[in-house]
């Protein structure tokens, strides 16, 4: 059984990494998880996000959820915000699109234009 003692050691390592990387997370990725999002596969989208974070060891990103964004036909929806830049909203992001999105936008800093959804500000 996984022990909480193990988690204590992980915490020390994580804090050390965070100290080296500098204060605070610089980016945020949000998955819409309303009833419409869940029905469209948002849980698999979120799982794919978490798998990429684990696989690529991305420590400086905040992962959050939100509810229905009022554009149910575009679910699953994902938003990415990097630093002070405007938040970018994406539609129809199934799990298969996540590796590309993470690589190009979250890590590469270049939004993926063809998957973007224009939202009213």
């Amino acid at each position: 059984m996984k022990s909480l003692e193990e988690l204590r050691k992980i915490k020390e390592r994580a804090l050390e990494r965070r100290k080296l990387a500098g204060e605070g997370a610089k980016s945020r990725i949000t998955v819409a998880m309303g009833t419409c999002g869940i029905a469209a596969g948002a849980r698999d989208t979120m799982k794919a996000v978490l798998n990429e974070i684990e696989k690529r060891q991305i420590a400086d990103v905040v992962v959050t959820q939100t509810g229905c964004m009022g554009l149910c036909e575009y679910e699953p929806m994902v938003t990415i915000k990097i630093g002070e830049a405007d938040e970018v909203t994406y539609g129809k992001i199934d799990a298969a699109r996540i590796p590309t999105l993470i690589e190009k936008h979250l890590l590469g800093g270049e939004p993926v234009a063809e998957w973007q959804v224009q939202t009213a500000k």
Partner: peptide
Amino acid sequence: LHEILGPGVPLSDPEVLGFLHAM
């Protein structure tokens, strides 16, 4: 888990995620 990790380490930390999945 939160008590051990404290405010400084979120559950979305890559190594913590690995622990959570395994657990």
